[in-house]
């Protein structure tokens, strides 16, 4: 099941991604409309992070293409923001909260340029939006998990992008932070920004997102939440129907066949 929409801000066509020949995403075709708050849902190891990383050009893709605002990532990079999983960085790194948020401005600066006053104001404003302005000079190692996530979010806001990709922003954060983050994301979406969030809590998912992508190696369904978030699709996403596919994956890995013929 899939949805055709006009003028999607994100269009993925026939995407296949492999890690040392083992397919992790298989033939993914999907679109996301402008201004949506979209959830990418699926079990552990479904390839959710890989999907976002391939959109951001962080992992090589075996086949297919990805268009953002109908263009290649390279042309629209300044309008795209990526929030990695919180656990992917070393929080003992010698940096303060504002140092990290300032990194959100680096994409606009280019080589040999250092942040100007205007950049600092953008960074401080972003910190205010996530309620962390009181912590701006705090060492990042002294932050709680929820605060770390807010800092990552502030860095993304400082990028002043039009589309945001966030990997598990709610993992390991307290309830208050989760509420604060989701209302901030809704606010951004209301302003016409597009937010794509990897999420794995099925309880909260339908309340948070107006668009959903159900994923388990292949795309199970995507579309407006009320159309795709149903028992049948969830069973297919989380159930054991994919044994054949996973066995073929393993075969490919062991035999080292290419998943796609070389062009």
């Amino acid at each position: 099941m899939s949805a055709e929409i006009e003028n999607p801000v994100l269009e993925i066509h026939d995407l296949t991604v492999t890690y040392s020949k083992k397919p992790v995403l298989w033939d993914v075709d999907m679109t996301i409309p402008k201004g949506s708050l979209a959830g990418i849902i699926g079990p552990n190891g479904a390839g959710k992070s890989t999907l976002i990383k391939s959109i951001m050009g962080l992992v090589p893709i075996a086949s297919g293409y990805i268009k953002i605002f109908d263009k290649d990532l390279k042309e629209v990079r300044k309008n795209v923001s990526y929030v990695p999983q919180r656990g992917s960085v070393d929080w003992d790194f010698p940096a303060s909260v504002v140092d990290v948020v300032m990194m959100g401005r680096y994409g606009h600066l280019g080589f040999f340029n250092y942040p100007k006053k205007a950049d600092k104001e953008v960074a401080l404003d972003a910190l205010r939006k996530v309620g962390m302005d009181a912590y701006k000079n705090r060492q990042i190692s002294e932050l709680s998990g929820g605060q770390q996530q807010r800092v990552f979010l502030a860095r993304a806001i400082a990028q002043q992008a039009d589309i945001y990709f966030m990997d598990e922003p709610f993992a390991g954060v307290d309830a208050a932070t989760e509420r604060a983050i989701i209302s901030l994301l809704k606010e951004l979406a209301d302003k016409g920004k597009t937010i794509v969030v990897v999420h794995h809590d099925l309880q909260t998912a339908p309340n948070y997102f107006d668009w959903m992508v159900l994923l388990n190696t292949r795309l199970v369904a995507h579309g407006p939440t009320q159309e795709v978030f149903n028992d049948e699709n969830l069973k297919e996403t989380y159930g054991g129907k994919l044994t054949l596919l996973s066995e073929i994956s393993k075969l490919l890995e062991n035999k080292r066949f290419p998943a796609r013929e070389a062009k």
Binding site: L58, Y82, P84, S88, V89, A95, G107, R155, Q159
Partner: peptide, 9 residues
Amino acid sequence: FDEEFAQSI
């Protein structure tokens, strides 16, 4: 600090 973010920008 954050190689993936660096690449993304």
